[in-house]
């Protein structure tokens, strides 16, 4: 019963829509920085062969444990492998890991959330109760259990991180879908005779997508961190794979003689994660201006 015809609000909405979305995103300095780092990462990943001076696994590209120099921008490791090349190839690996893990969480989670919200009744109870149970296992435990079963490897680490993320995505999607479903436009469509496919894929899905994009972006940083942690523990990528977490782990033995072995991979992970974090925050603000106040 509150009055809602707010012409000011309409005007505000309209102004926003005239500004292209990307512009609104980049207009926030944080968003621009995040986007820039992500673009740099993608370029590194796509053109690793062209950018990296050496093969990432070629031993004795230089003398072992030489400090950073013009020949080896980030120095060499204990086998004389070029660290810069390993970091560049590591970017490709890291993005792959993040995308695949998030892809798994996102697709399964969205499916579960949508179906639970749409189907209602027993299916909803079953799906969301089990999601709650799995969620309270915590992501680390799920990932660890998966690696314990499947055995340590990069592929298994990706799958483990992906599966571990499913409950969070499912819950978010469920909450978002549920709120859309309660809106009159959805019921108007039911009244107009819309079938399941139309309701699910033309009304529900497009309206939860913005939320899911935001949490997937923030989720990328989470997945990258988790996978790097697994590799660091020796449960993910195995040598000589140029994975940042594994490199960091190998580098710690040489900290006194070659601190760069530990610094750069760590820095690379931190920057990447930071980039996706601020990009995610900026995306959320751009999609929902009110979030700016809150986050």
């Amino acid at each position: 019963m509150t009055q809602a015809t707010d012409t000011a609000a309409v005007g505000r909405d309209a102004r926003q829509s005239r500004t292209p979305f990307v512009l609104r995103l980049v207009r926030q300095p944080a968003g621009a920085i995040g986007l820039a780092i992500v673009v740099a990462l993608v370029v590194m990943a796509l053109f690793a062969e062209q950018i990296a001076p050496y093969s990432p696994i070629k031993m004795a590209a230089g003398r072992p444990l030489t400090s950073p120099s013009l020949a080896h921008l980030l120095g060499t490791d204990e086998f004389g492998r070029d660290m810069f090349s390993r970091i560049v190839y590591g970017a490709r690996l890291t993005l792959q890991i993040g995308l695949i893990a998030v892809g798994i969480s996102l697709s399964i989670g969205t499916l579960i959330g949508l179906v639970a919200a749409y189907a209602g009744g027993f299916v909803e109870k079953l799906l969301m109760r089990s999601t709650d149970v799995v969620f309270s296992f915590t992501e680390t435990l799920i990932a660890l259990a998966f690696v314990a079963v499947l055995g340590p490897s990069l592929e298994n680490a990706m799958i483990a991180v992906g599966i571990a993320g499913v409950p969070f995505y499912a819950r978010t999607c469920y909450a978002s879908a549920l709120s859309e479903e309660g809106k009159p436009y959805f019921e108007a469509s039911i009244a107009a005779g819309a079938g399941h496919a139309r309701l699910l894929f033309l009304h529900l899905l497009p309206n939860v997508v913005p939320t899911m994009i935001v949490i997937a972006t923030l989720g990328l940083s989470n997945a990258i961190l988790a996978a790097a942690a697994l590799s660091f523990l020796g449960l993910g990528a195995q040598p000589p794979t140029p994975e940042w977490g594994a490199m960091l782990s190998a580098g710690r033995d040489f900290f006194n003689r070659a601190p760069w072995l530990m610094l750069y991979p760590g820095l690379a992970i931190a920057l990447t994660v930071l980039a996706f974090n601020i990009l995610g925050d900026a995306l959320r603000e751009a999609l929902d201006p009110r979030a700016k106040e809150r986050s």
């Binding site: 942690a229 977490g245 900290f255 006194n256 760590g266 992970i269 930071l274």
Partner: peptide, 22 residues
Amino acid sequence: AIAGISIPHFWLGLLLLFWLAV
């Protein structure tokens, strides 16, 4: 804070270890 949540804790641990202990 956003930098803090982005730094991997295993890296932070190593840095603290080498700085404060070593």
